[in-house]
Design a protein around this nucleic acid. Structure first.
Length: 422
RNA sequence: GGAGGAGUGCCCGAGUGGCUAAAGGGGACGGACUGUAAAUCCGUUGGCUAUGCCUACGUUGGUUCGAAUCCAACCUCCUCCA
């Protein structure tokens, strides 16, 4: 087993080298043997995603990037959607049980997750990546059969030693049998994929180590198979917090939960110290280019951040969305409040009715209530046609309209609108 | 089944009859500085037809001139005992 950060002993396979230099390897059960396997022919690798949310988020990006690289280098990815395991809930490193999901929620979540996955790995063609749902086999088992076939291969003694459940037990928090069996289910997944698709490598987050190891063991005991496990690093920011939060919560991959521009902004706002690492992990630029960009200093790093944002957005949302986001970003921060195209439309007669500034701010969605809008105005954060307005009672009249009956409204540095009255 | 403890604003958490739209912290937002970074500093952080009104401290009722604060019942969670 290797730990992250240790220098790569001469790796033979391109795949292992790439994953290593990208920083995608945290731990591996047997890097030499895996390297050997990757060098001698195509390897089938899988990563699983439970349907705990309606969309994947940036935390899921690392295993997906790993699969993407493997695919690019001639190996074959399988993405497992946890339609079965989601009915149980992974207890790993959690001090309380997950709320149980019902079937319709799981189905809806899987549909959302699938769309992001399809962008990241190529499912097309006979050699394309495979997308499978573990409900396919997990729901088929009968209880006694399952216990006899697999329950006999696990000892509670060993299961209790895993860090992933230790804290729960030490904290004397209840760990139900249902949750406790999760690791068996994931182990069976691996075995099943090995049998069905000759899958020999499982990739997961570092919290999945225990679950992965169980699968490897099961493969050895049942079928004398040689399986491998690889974990990707936990994604944290330079400031030490678990990464992936914005004002509205997690940084979702699905455009319905976070717009492609919002996604782009997230990466554009990366802290300086995170830029080199993120370029490696989340873009596919040659390492030489990554290094060049990483060496930029001071304000020049902003260029690197834009490239980072655009590259990641292109991977997750497509090149067109990435380009549009870049343009939108440039326009937004060009210094003026001018935007080329109207973002909102309002009925012209509202001017005659005495449209208030606060109403306008709420109308374009920059504040949730008049009170909030009022505070923004009083704090001097609101600009009308480029001029700061600090009177909350200000009314909008036709005199405020410029060419084509438009006016610009901006709140803070990053929220700008062009309203057209027609 | 028995005994005790807890449920407060986006989150954590103080508050045990009026001065409480509720300390403090976090987060978020706005401002200054700047590079859309980090650090720092300042301000704001329930709603409204706004010198007033309404809604809010698990739920429902009650005591009181007046309750987040007292009482009762209920719901949820936790701890200990059986």
């Amino acid at each position: 087993m290797i730990e992250a950060g240790k220098p790569a002993t001469k790796l033979k396979s391109e795949a292992a080298q790439v994953l290593f230099e990208r920083g995608l390897i945290n731990q591996c059960t047997d890097i030499e043997a895996l390297d050997e396997a990757l060098a001698s022919g195509p390897v089938t690798a899988y990563a699983g995603f439970d349907a705990t949310g309606a969309s994947l988020h940036v935390g899921h990006l690392m295993p997906l990037m790993t699969l993407r690289w493997l695919q690019k280098l001639g190996h074959r990815p399988i993405v497992v959607l946890g339609g079965g395991t989601s009915q149980v809930g992974d207890p790993s490193f959690r001090n309380d049980a997950r709320p149980l999901l019902d079937g319709s929620q799981i189905a809806a979540n899987i549909a959302g997750i699938r769309r992001s996955v399809e962008r990241l790995v190529d499912m097309r063609g006979p050699d394309g990546a495979l997308l499978v749902d573990n409900a396919e086999w997990l729901t088929e088992f009968r209880f006694l059969e399952f216990l006899r076939d697999y329950g006999s291969q696990f000892t509670v003694n060993r299961m209790l030693t895993f860090d992933s459940v230790k804290s729960r037990i030490e904290a004397q928090q209840p760990l139900t049998v249902l949750e406790f069996c999760y690791m068996m289910l994931q182990a069976v997944d691996f075995l099943e994929l090995a049998r069905r698709h000759d899958c020999t490598l499982q990739i997961g987050g570092s919290d999945q180590w225990g679950n992965i190891v169980n699968g490897i063991e099961l493969g050895r005991r049942c079928d004398a198979r040689r399986l491998f496990g690889l974990t990707v690093p936990l994604l944290t920011t330079a400031s030490g917090t678990k990464m992936g939060k914005t004002a509205d919560g997690a940084v979702w991959l699905h455009p319905e939960h976070l717009s492609s521009f919002g996604f782009w902004q997230f990466w554009r706002n990366t802290a300086d110290a995170d830029v080199p690492r993120f370029l490696r992990l989340f873009t596919e630029m040659p390492i030489s280019e990554v290094i060049r960009l990483s060496e930029l200093q001071g304000a020049e790093l902003n260029e690197a951040k834009k490239i980072l944002a655009t590259q990641v957005t292109a991977i997750v949302h497509g090149p067109d969305a990435a380009r549009a986001a870049l343009e939108q970003g440039d326009a937004l921060f060009s210094g003026s409040d001018e935007i080329a195209e109207p973002t909102h439309r309002m009925e012209r007669h509202r001017l005659a009715e005495g449209l208030g500034l606060l109403e306008l701010i709420v109308g374009v969605g920059f504040a949730a209530s008049n009170g909030e809008a009022r505070r923004l105005v009083e704090a001097g954060g609101v600009r009308l046609n480029g001029q700061v307005v600090d009177d909350p009672r200000r009314r909008i009249s036709s005199g405020d309209l410029g060419a084509e009956d438009r006016l610009s409204l901006a709140v803070g540095k990053r929220r700008k609108a062009l309203v057209e009255f027609g």
